[in-house]
Amino acid sequence: MAETYNASDPIEVAPGVFHLGVQDAPNSFNNIPYVIVDGNEAALIDPGSAKPEFFNVVLEKVKKALKGDLKKIKHIIVQHQDPDLCAAIPLVEVHCAPDVTVHAPLEAKVLIQHYNFKSKLHPLDDDDTLVFGDNRKFVFAMTPYCHFVGSMVTYDTKHKIVFSSDAFGGFTGMTDLYAGPDYPLQLTSFLGQYLGSKRALEYALKRLEQINAAYGVNLIAPQHGCLIKKELIPAYLEAAHALQVGGEIDSLAAKHGVKLGG
């Protein structure tokens, strides 16, 4: 399997699970949709940006991953409401199955409607499941306030992959597929600033640890940054537990003389 990705080819990171990453070198903020194929159906996770330099790459990679048959895509899953993962919905839906459904956390639904797509929007709650293809099962675990109230991660029970969205994401403009020596810094630089609540982070981490203990996790697949292999997951969990978040509030409070309790 390739250790780096490029602008033209999807990378199969597990059987039927394709990384569709788009390098964003100028902004050091790569964007990674995934498509998962099972039997005659497929699910697209966090389809990405509407900017042509992003969307055109994703579309070409999806076509290759699905051997041209984009009508296999019956499900589009968006794990929170941000434009870097949702803006492509109206662009990609026209290529998908006519009855494609967009699945999103309940609290994100009221915002996601404004991307103005036509497909049915199905709200998700904690522990909801999606079964598609040949009995492929996804479990959705809500991770509230990490970094939005309507945020979630998606657990693929077949290959034991957590599609973690922004959780375990990192700032990088490189094309490394897997987390390497610089990834702890890339991860903590991103999460340290984009998460506001230590309590929210701890809930998400402990929930992930529960899933790992109960069912196992072979791979963490974030929407930015690098994939984290099974053997490195404990080290990244430890790094994330140690992370200080919400510091921007303290900086501004000090600047403006605002006194905060707690």
């Binding site: 902004n27 050091s28 903020f29 700032f171 630089s189 340290g192 600033q193 510091g247 921007e248 303290d250 900086s251 000090a254 600047k255």
Partner: peptide, 19 residues
């Protein structure tokens, strides 16, 4: 000009108590 680098730099200076 490089937002991600500035975001990280803000965390570095905050860590040492500079505002």
């Amino acid at each position: 000009e490089m937002a991600v680098v500035k975001i990280s730099a803000k965390q570095i200076i905050r860590k040492v108590g500079i505002n």
